[in-house]
Computed example of a mutant assay.
Amino acid sequence: MHFLAGGMRTNVYVDGFNLYYGCLKGTPHKWLDLEALFDRVLPNNTIECIHYFTARVEARPNDPDVAVRQATYLRALSTLPRVRVHYGTFLASPVRAPVLECDANGKPIRQNGKLVVKRKPNGAVQMEWVHKTEEKGSDVNLAAHLLRDALKGVVPCAVVVSNDSDLLMPVHMAQIDGGIVVGLVPPRPQGSAELKRMANFKRDIRPHHLAASQFADVLQDAVGLITKPNTW
């Protein structure tokens, strides 16, 4: 964990949804310049490429503009020469799920650490149809690109930005079979302890890194102006 990677040519592999839910949701820092961020978080590394893995979201009943905001952000990312965006898929499907007991504030109730499900008078669990959305492919795409680059010797150092323990084996293979140094930037402190132990080094994203790494409110590309979403 105390490996020094100073000056190493480095590629960064970012799980976009992990990054968003780990340190961006609910903050004023969503208009994030990834090049500026990782140059700050990894000041002693020479960052050659930032691979960003995501999926295009669809409008939701409670947030009809979410897809427009994401498209605007992806367009902003396209102005950064060292960023490559890779797309998985976003699936929506109806599923039946147990209904939870909630308190007066609408929050799920727990007993002995376990969620409490509603039951019918006959004791059967009360079920409802719910709209489930699920992102597919980002973790697999990240692992594939990490391993390909490691085995081809593209760079001597890779940095993974994720909390996902599913990446344990790809990281291990990149280190052992690819012979590269693999660092970790966990988007939230409570990420996989195993992944932290396996990484050769770890760096954390601090609030001041995010605040100092924002795009300008208005950018320009070949199409025209790109304006930061009003709610961001």
Results as ranks from 00 to 15, higher is better:
residue 202 K to F: 04
residue 196 K to Y: 09
residue 105 N to P: 13
residue 208 H to G: 08
residue 183 G to A: 05
residue 190 Q to K: 11
residue 134 E to C: 06
residue 198 M to W: 02
residue 92 A to D: 09
residue 129 W to L: 14
residue 167 L to C: 05
residue 105 N to C: 11
residue 88 G to K: 06
residue 205 I to Y: 00
residue 122 N to G: 10
residue 113 G to L: 00
residue 203 R to N: 01
residue 89 T to H: 12
residue 114 K to F: 07
residue 118 K to I: 03
residue 157 C to I: 10
residue 141 N to G: 14
residue 208 H to W: 04
residue 153 G to A: 02
residue 99 V to N: 12
residue 117 V to Y: 14
residue 172 H to R: 15
residue 163 N to Q: 04
residue 149 D to R: 07
residue 118 K to L: 03
residue 188 R to C: 02
residue 104 A to M: 07
residue 157 C to M: 06
residue 136 K to C: 12
residue 168 L to D: 08
residue 112 N to L: 05
residue 113 G to C: 00
residue 135 E to D: 05
residue 124 A to V: 08
residue 210 L to E: 13
residue 185 V to G: 00
residue 112 N to D: 08
residue 98 P to I: 09
residue 178 G to K: 06
residue 191 G to I: 00
residue 188 R to Y: 00
residue 101 E to K: 11
residue 198 M to F: 00
residue 203 R to S: 11
residue 160 V to Y: 04
residue 169 M to S: 13
residue 151 L to D: 12
residue 198 M to Y: 09
residue 124 A to W: 13
residue 134 E to T: 12
residue 151 L to G: 04
residue 128 E to I: 02
residue 107 K to G: 04
residue 189 P to S: 05
residue 183 G to C: 07
residue 178 G to I: 01
residue 151 L to I: 10
residue 197 R to K: 06
residue 96 R to N: 13
residue 137 G to T: 11
residue 194 E to T: 10
residue 207 P to E: 08
residue 145 H to F: 05
residue 161 V to P: 07
residue 206 R to V: 10
residue 104 A to G: 07
residue 181 V to C: 13
residue 96 R to Q: 13
residue 132 K to W: 03
residue 137 G to C: 00
residue 98 P to M: 07
residue 126 Q to S: 13
residue 159 V to R: 03
residue 207 P to I: 04
residue 207 P to H: 03
residue 138 S to A: 08
residue 160 V to D: 00
residue 107 K to D: 13
residue 100 L to M: 11
residue 100 L to Q: 05
residue 177 D to M: 13
residue 113 G to N: 00
residue 150 A to P: 13
residue 131 H to V: 04
residue 95 V to G: 09
residue 183 G to E: 03
residue 211 A to R: 12
residue 194 E to D: 09
residue 118 K to N: 06
residue 165 S to A: 05
residue 166 D to T: 14
residue 137 G to D: 10
residue 174 A to V: 00
residue 157 C to V: 02
residue 124 A to Y: 08
residue 138 S to H: 01
residue 145 H to P: 04
residue 116 V to G: 04
residue 106 G to W: 01
residue 95 V to W: 02
residue 102 C to V: 08
residue 163 N to M: 02
residue 121 P to H: 14
residue 138 S to V: 10
residue 152 K to D: 11
residue 150 A to W: 03
residue 128 E to P: 11
residue 122 N to M: 10
residue 150 A to E: 12
residue 135 E to W: 00
residue 173 M to F: 15
residue 190 Q to R: 05
residue 107 K to Q: 12
residue 103 D to W: 11
residue 89 T to I: 06
residue 106 G to A: 07
residue 151 L to R: 02
residue 134 E to H: 01
residue 208 H to T: 14
residue 135 E to Q: 10
residue 91 L to D: 15
residue 91 L to I: 15
residue 142 L to C: 10
residue 172 H to Y: 12
residue 120 K to H: 14
residue 136 K to P: 09
residue 175 Q to V: 01
residue 98 P to E: 11
residue 183 G to L: 05
residue 123 G to F: 13
residue 177 D to Y: 07
residue 122 N to V: 14
residue 155 V to G: 00
residue 145 H to I: 02
residue 183 G to Q: 07
residue 140 V to W: 10
residue 149 D to E: 04
residue 200 N to F: 03
residue 194 E to V: 11
residue 178 G to A: 07
residue 128 E to N: 12
residue 176 I to D: 15
residue 123 G to R: 06
residue 166 D to C: 01
residue 165 S to Q: 02
residue 166 D to F: 08
residue 162 S to V: 01
residue 119 R to L: 03
residue 169 M to P: 03
residue 126 Q to C: 11
residue 182 V to M: 07
